[in-house]
């Protein structure tokens, strides 16, 4: 039972937590605010917080000058594509490991996890070389495959832990009730697994969206997603804070929203079910 707490105590907690929360969030808030300033206001001394001439100009400029939509589209295709591809491969695998376990199931799961721990830089050149050989360098399909592969262990693991939570008795009950394997999967398993599959999908989109080693090293212009687009701002010319902020805001906004929805599942996904 939670114990009643004095209002004073609760007030102190609230003030402290909000102060720290805002401090941690501040860089994001500042980026969003700056994106609505003019370039001159962005570097004003002293800094301007809320009282400036709000403008949307930067967003228009960023799109016009650097074709933001193309990078966004690349990000969407690569993150979404790798996730869907990964799910198609992982769902049957996780299903069979959870419901028809064998002596080797555990070893296979652990081995899959170990592939996730390989440092990317250790295999950078071979992949680079293979990509040139296969004509995959700077293509969306190439990047989609790589991101699918690096996140496949996480997808399998997350789905496995979700499937494991579906009691075997329920599937047996369905079998007793006359459901065929197809009906069992369609009416019982799928509806029960959908929340798990959805949060796996969400987390994986986030991870793929933010991946910044392979996306930086395997793309040039055609297939570059938002990570690479933002990196191109690292060598600036002239006044660019407001535009950098606008570009950044657009790059992180979709994922920030998705992330907030999936925060509960995040823990399970990132610790391979070891913390629940």
């Amino acid at each position: 039972m939670a114990r009643a707490v004095t209002t004073r105590r609760k007030t102190i907690n609230t003030v402290a937590a909000w102060a720290i929360g805002l401090l941690i969030f501040f860089p994001i808030l500042w980026t969003i605010l700056t994106s609505f300033k003019t370039e001159a206001q962005a570097i004003n001394d002293p800094p301007l917080f809320l009282f400036f001439d709000w403008t949307l100009e930067n967003y228009a400029v960023v799109q016009e000058r650097s074709d933001y939509m193309r990078f966004l589209w690349n990000s969407v295709i690569i993150a979404g594509g790798s996730t869907i591809l990964g799910l198609i491969i992982a769902v049957p695998a996780a299903w069979s490991m959870a419901f028809v376990p064998s002596k080797r199931t555990k070893d296979i799961l652990m081995w899959m996890l170990s592939t996730k721990m390989l440092p990317a830089v250790g295999v950078l050149y071979p992949i680079y070389l293979l990509f040139i050989e296969l004509g995959l360098l700077d293509t969306r399909i190439g990047l989609t495959i790589v991101l699918m592969l690096i996140n496949l262990p996480i997808i399998v693991w997350m789905l496995y832990t979700y499937f494991k939570e579906i009691p075997g008795e329920i599937l047996e009950a369905a079998r007793m009730d006359g459901a065929t394997l197809k009906e069992e999967i369609l009416y019982i398993l799928t509806p029960m697994a959908i929340p798990g599959i959805a949060s796996t999908l969400l987390l994986n989109v986030i991870l793929a969206w933010n991946e910044a080693f392979w996306t930086l090293n395997l793309t040039a212009a055609k297939a570059a997603p938002l990570t690479a687009f933002i990196a191109s701002y690292s060598s600036p010319e002239g006044l660019f804070y407001a535009k950098l902020s606008a570009a950044s805001t657009m790059a992180i906004a979709p994922i920030l929203i998705l992330g907030w929805f999936s925060q509960k599942q995040l823990v399970r996904g990132l610790t391979f079910g070891a913390v629940k």
Partner: peptide, 10 residues
């Protein structure tokens, strides 16, 4: 939690 969702380049 928000900073975790910000892409590293940003």
């Amino acid at each position: 939690i928000a900073p975790f969702f910000v892409m590293p380049t940003v």
